[in-house]
Amino acid sequence: MANFATLDELKARLDWTLDADEERIAASALEDASDLACLHAGRDWTSANAPRIVRTLVLKACRRFMNNPSGYTQSRAGDETLGWGDDQGEDAGTVYFSADERRMLQEIGGRKPGLVSAQISAWNSRRRPVAAGLVPVAQPAPDARPFPLFSDEVEPW
Rank of each mutant, 00 (worst) to 15 (best):
N124W: 08
M104R: 08
G114L: 00
P156L: 03
R111W: 07
R145L: 13
T94R: 09
W84C: 06
D152K: 06
R145W: 08
V137R: 05
W84D: 11
A132L: 12
M104H: 11
G109K: 00
G133V: 08
G109Y: 02
I120W: 08
N124T: 12
S121Q: 12
P140Q: 11
D143I: 02
S151R: 10
G133F: 05
E90T: 13
G89M: 01
V154D: 15
S125H: 04
A99K: 12
R128G: 03
S121E: 09
A144T: 15
D100H: 02
A122F: 12
E155G: 03
R102G: 00
A131H: 00
V95E: 00
G114C: 01
K112A: 14
Q106R: 15
A141F: 07
D91C: 14
P142Q: 06
W123Q: 11
F97P: 01
S117K: 12
V116I: 15
W84L: 01
Q88R: 14
L115V: 09
S151K: 14
A99N: 09
P113Q: 10
A92Q: 02
E107A: 12
G89Y: 00
V154K: 13
F147C: 08
V135Q: 10
P136K: 01
E153W: 07
D91H: 11
F147T: 10
E155Y: 06
V137F: 00
A132I: 15
P113E: 13
M104V: 10
L134C: 09
A141D: 13
N124K: 11
L115Q: 15
S98V: 02
V154S: 13
D143T: 06
S151G: 11
P156W: 02
I120C: 09
L149R: 11
S125F: 00
I120V: 11
F147V: 08
V137M: 03
D143K: 03
D91G: 11
P136E: 00
D152N: 15
S125M: 00
L105Q: 05
S121I: 02
R127T: 13
D87G: 04
E90P: 01
N124H: 10
P113A: 14
D87S: 14
V116S: 13
S151P: 03
E107D: 11
R111D: 08
V95I: 03
K112P: 04
P142R: 06
D87E: 15
Q106W: 00
V154N: 12
P156K: 08
P146V: 12
E153C: 05
L149E: 12
V95H: 01
A122Y: 05
S117I: 15
D143P: 00
V135D: 12
D87Q: 15
S117G: 14
S151W: 07
G109H: 03
R127F: 10
D100Q: 09
D86H: 10
G89T: 02
V137S: 03
G93T: 01
P136D: 05
I120H: 06
A131F: 00
A99W: 08
L105T: 07
P140L: 15
A131K: 11
P129T: 06
